[in-house]
Design a protein around this nucleic acid. Structure first.
Lengths: 351, 351
DNA sequence: GTGAAAGCGCTAACAT
DNA sequence: ATGTTAGCGCTTTCAC
């Protein structure tokens, strides 16, 4: 008949000879509708190709069954993989998603985004942009303006908010310890941009692992990159000059590690014999580098998925049980994947 | 005062001693409000921390200023880069985004997604999932159910829908022609999964360029991969056996090309001297491969951006000028980036 | 089991 | 320049 979405609950009620509430009960699968009434209504609904308006429902019910998601740096594989985990799990649990992306990582005009989410009656918010510089400062001022549960990903621990993150510190320690276990003692580090909390955690993990092994960490052993392969190339060249006796290097991410391999190749440095390399992230390509890359694998898809699950729990707690829940703090442990760039005994490449 | 979002237009009207309509005029920046009335209302608004409800506005206005975006494969860099272009331009042009991701590329349960978008009063839809197998078949049945403008990305041309895409065919011809210009005559191809329209276009570009050069294309010169580095490794090994005289290869994407370089390295095949390699995509890392990779660069961020711009044009045309517009067909030309994997005269690596 | 009335928060179309 | 009326399409509450 009329095109989908044209019919309203009122038409259905009229055609079925019942009231709008009865139709409402049917479409929401509520009890207290006689079996044959329900059937009659369902028939009319399919006849009329009736589709309830989510907007009207949101207005009346004062909730939308949607979450607001704030992301940043979608063109990088990490954030987009996390988002992918978010979409999959939200779908599974019956929630839709409103998406905003920060135009720059350190953008500070947070208020309009929050307002936009809230004005759309989101049931909860996922703050999936990384913590950089002072881009979490707004929390102090605005936390109580937010009337819905909110979960922050990849954020330094604080007691007043819920956080789900990867344990970067632990991952970095594992990476460094792996190099130490291989007998390396001159271990450098190419850090991510230290404005990033994650980069600082990884640096700290390297430092603490070195110190725990009785080795000292000097300034010249660390160079800061910006996650890009390009910056990695600059960094490794600088590091090789400043720290020529280096026999192992923990690189802040796999992209920068790629450039370390390229530089070594160009200079005739053999990997892993002369220089053992460990990356961080575990991107799929890392297995196909020359040589394949030892790395700390963080499952960012899982991160997003867990975050949604926890957010749903918070929302349910508030709505169903009407109880305020304690903030959640989860840190997912990453995993060491040993490949040829650190261990010569590993077979040559992916196959 | 009350927490943000608590106050309604009614409270503001009462406090300011005007009607709701006047408040509405103020918040929508409409004319016909006296300067001092406007000021008084604005003061009350900021006193009460009033925030209009986007939901109520959507219901009443029968539009939401939001677009529905369907994506797929966010964990891959292509789709997520496109999404990034979409978010940036949507933000710029004043639109919000409702996001859905297909759980698998070839998923066929499209109807619920469409219904979900429409029930949320989206002003338009961006279909940003790639065309694979028969996953566009639904268009025939459902196109007239969709009451809003819709733009398809990366879709084979058809006259009844609007399409914005990269010109894959042209890119593949450029890649192959580049190898021909270098004097190579034995040129193989590692294709993407041929279920994908893009993969078929790239295959066709290779074929046509070869034929135009008077060279014949045989079955054994082509191996099908699935875009992953892993599949690329299998493919290049197979190709080297079936087509040993090969002196150039056009690889369907950069990830698979990475494995070609790894395989060549392991077998002692020198690149580009013995085998010239061209990839497709132009991912940032490709510059840092060993050796750096010649590739066809497609600007997917721009693709997403253009798609949004065109969608806004369609929406405006319908709303403002109330005119039906002809479907749009745009094909963005990709760009050849020459690096060391095809041309030995190029300097060594990124620096 | 079912229905009537009131309302969610806003805007379009008309008054004045 | 401002106000009134009547919705937008649904759900909640309470009555029957």
């Amino acid at each position: 008949m009329g095109r989908t979405g044209k019919a309203t609950i009122y038409e259905v009620a009229r055609e079925a000879g019942v009231s709008r509430q009865t139709v409402s009960r049917v479409i929401n699968n509520k009890p207290d509708v006689a079996l044959d009434t329900r059937k009659r209504v369902l028939d009319i609904i399919s006849d009329l190709e009736y589709q309830p308006s989510a907007i009207a429902r949101s207005l009346s019910q004062r909730r939308s069954y949607n979450f607001g998601v704030l992301t940043a740096g979608l063109k990088y594989i990490g954030p987009s993989t996390t988002l992918s985990g978010i979409t999959a799990t939200a779908e599974e649990l019956g929630y839709g998603l409103l998406l905003k992306e920060l135009s720059s990582f350190s953008a500070n005009n947070i208020h309009p985004i929050l307002i936009w989410f809230l004005s759309h009656q989101v049931d909860g918010i996922l703050w999936a942009a990384p913590e950089i510089g002072s881009n979490r400062d707004w929390i102090n001022d605005m936390l109580d303006e937010i009337r819905v549960p909110i979960i922050f990903l990849t954020t330094e621990k604080r007691d007043d908010i819920s956080i789900v993150t990867i344990d970067n510190y632990h991952g970095a320690k594992m990476a460094t310890q792996h190099l130490l276990d291989l007998g390396r003692k001159q271990i450098g580090h190419i850090a991510g941009p230290l404005e990033w909390w994650e980069a600082r955690q990884r640096l700290k993990g390297w430092q603490d692992a070195m110190r725990a092994a009785g080795l000292k960490t000097e300034k010249r052993m660390v160079v800061e990159g910006n996650w890009s392969s390009k910056s990695g190339k600059v960094a490794i060249n600088q590091l090789l000059s400043a720290y020529p006796e280096m026999d192992g290097v923990f690189v802040g991410n796999d992209q920068m590690a790629l450039s370390v391999l390229q530089a070594a190749f160009e200079r005739g440095i053999s990997i892993p014999e002369q220089l053992a390399v460990v990356g961080f992230d575990g991107i799929p390509e890392s297995e196909y580098y020359c040589p394949s890359l030892t790395t700390i694998c963080q499952n960012q898809h899982h991160l997003g998925s867990i975050a949604v699950q926890e957010l749903v729990r918070l929302v349910d707690a508030v709505n169903l049980e009407n109880q305020k829940v304690e903030p959640i703090h989860l840190a997912i442990k990453p995993e060491l994947i040993i490949r040829r760039s650190s261990d010569p005994d590993i077979s040559k490449g992916g196959d």
